[in-house]
Amino acid sequence: MEQINPTRMELIKKNAQIKLAEQGRDLLREKMDALIQEFFNVMESVSQSRGELEKLSDIAQHALLIAQAIDDPVTLKSASFATRRGVTLDIKGKNVMGVPVPIIEKKRFVKSLLDRGYSILGVSSRIDEAAEKYEAELDLIITLAETETSLRRLGSEIQMTRRRVNALEQVLIPELKRQAKYIEITIDERDREDLYRLKKVKKIIERKKKGIKEV
């Protein structure tokens, strides 16, 4: 155990530290509760979007299969040359209880017939439908990227806060309390010793006084 001065001043300091640590623990608990609530809100939307994504992915794959089967994969590849372009996204951030989470710009990737870059006369509506389904999937993937990143960051923040609460609750506060107790015991012991000494001195003095009177 570290060297502790068993003084009243030290006891006051330790009590103040205990109060502060307990306040900190309560605050962190409140933060954790808020984060958990936010985590579950986000998780609900993530699991909903995940299910939706799986469904959409199946539909898109089926549409692609039909387009490849009837229109020939080379026609599809040719159409993909016309539609190929980069995807640029504007990403900002916001704070949820001190946790930075991304906000990805909501951009619709589902294009209209005339915006895909190929002539509608040479490309079948099966290819259009496959493109549309994959565009919708991309929309959902980007929304999911935002919510899943938030979920991951909230999750790690909850873990970190829990570790902090545990450290306060299991280590720091008990240790401070133990130290305060030790100081209290030591002070009480010293008080009792002082009292005993005083009584002893008083007795000696009284005995001395008695002896003088008898003489």
């Binding site: 080379v74 026609t75 040719s78 040359f81 016309a82 190929r84 190929y118 002539s119 040479g122």
Partner: peptide
């Protein structure tokens, strides 16, 4: 026509 369109698309990108 299909081949020329494919070549033009490919050359553009």
């Amino acid at each position: 026509v299909q081949n020329i369109k494919t070549i033009l698309r490919g050359k553009k990108i």
